Computed example of a mutant assay.
Amino acid sequence: MVLIGRRLSAEELAAVRADPTTVDALLYGDLDDDDAEMPEPELDLDKSWHGIHYLLTGTDWQIGDGAGAAILGGAEIGQDGGYGPPRLLDQDTDRAVATALDMLDVGVLRARFDPDAMTAAETYPDIWTNGPDELDYLMSHYTELRRFYHAAATNDQAVLLAIT
């Protein structure tokens, strides 16, 4: 399971709200057209998403305000692709997430990294006790997450997230 995200312009947001079936095309491209290349997602956290969520919230699935909404927050929209429906975060939520992520010190997140607790909480994927490389893996993707939300907030964009 990987988490992907896409920033939405005002026009795309209006289209998604008017017709939630457009979500799949925005996230995955035209799946019926074999000649079309799949668009690269603007955010691809690979399998780090659940570990980052744990570092942000200290929980496996609870969603909080601010940074706690960065991974699993938002309103469900569109069809369930197997791991739950995509989620839509509006511009106000994006700004709150971006601000909270910018205020989080990476040292605080590093201090929250507890491989035994993450394993006990069944934080996906089950790699946390393999060694210190997992923390570096999480921090590199956390940096991507911060950039993604910062760009969305700066450009007054909504965000669409999906676990695929």
Results as ranks from 00 to 15, higher is better:
T99N: 06
G64I: 11
I52R: 04
D65H: 10
T57D: 08
D65Y: 08
D102W: 01
T57C: 06
G84N: 03
D102T: 13
M103G: 14
Q62F: 13
V106T: 14
Y54T: 03
T93K: 10
L104H: 11
D94C: 15
L104D: 03
L43R: 00
D92R: 13
V108Q: 13
D102G: 14
L104R: 12
W49S: 06
D60M: 06
P86Q: 07
G74T: 09
M103W: 07
D80K: 09
T59L: 05
A69Y: 06
G107E: 15
D92Y: 00
V106K: 14
V108N: 04
W49A: 15
I77T: 08
G51P: 05
G51T: 01
Y83A: 15
L109Q: 02
L43T: 00
L56Q: 03
L45R: 02
G84Y: 01
L88N: 09
E76V: 07
Y83W: 13
G66P: 09
G73S: 02
A70N: 07
I71M: 07
E76R: 14
D105E: 13
H53W: 00
Q79T: 13
L45N: 08
A75Y: 02
L43E: 04
A98Q: 03
E42F: 00
T59K: 11
L101E: 02
G78I: 04
L45D: 04
I71E: 11
D90H: 13
G51W: 02
R87C: 05
A100K: 00
A100W: 05
W61D: 15
A100I: 01
D94M: 13
V97R: 06
D90P: 06
D60A: 15
G58R: 02
T93N: 03
G66K: 09
D80E: 10
A67P: 04
L43W: 04
G68T: 05
Y54V: 01
V97L: 01
D80W: 07
D90A: 08
G78H: 11
L109M: 02
L109E: 00
G66Q: 12
S48R: 12
P86F: 08
D46L: 14
M103H: 15
A98Y: 05
G74E: 10
H50F: 11
L88A: 06
L72P: 01
H50K: 11
G107K: 14
D65C: 01
G68S: 13
V108W: 04
T59D: 11
G68V: 05
E42T: 07
K47M: 15
E42W: 03
G82D: 02
L101C: 10
L72R: 15
L72F: 12
G58E: 06
G81N: 14
A70L: 08
I71G: 00
L45I: 01
L55P: 00
I63G: 01
A67G: 10
G51E: 03
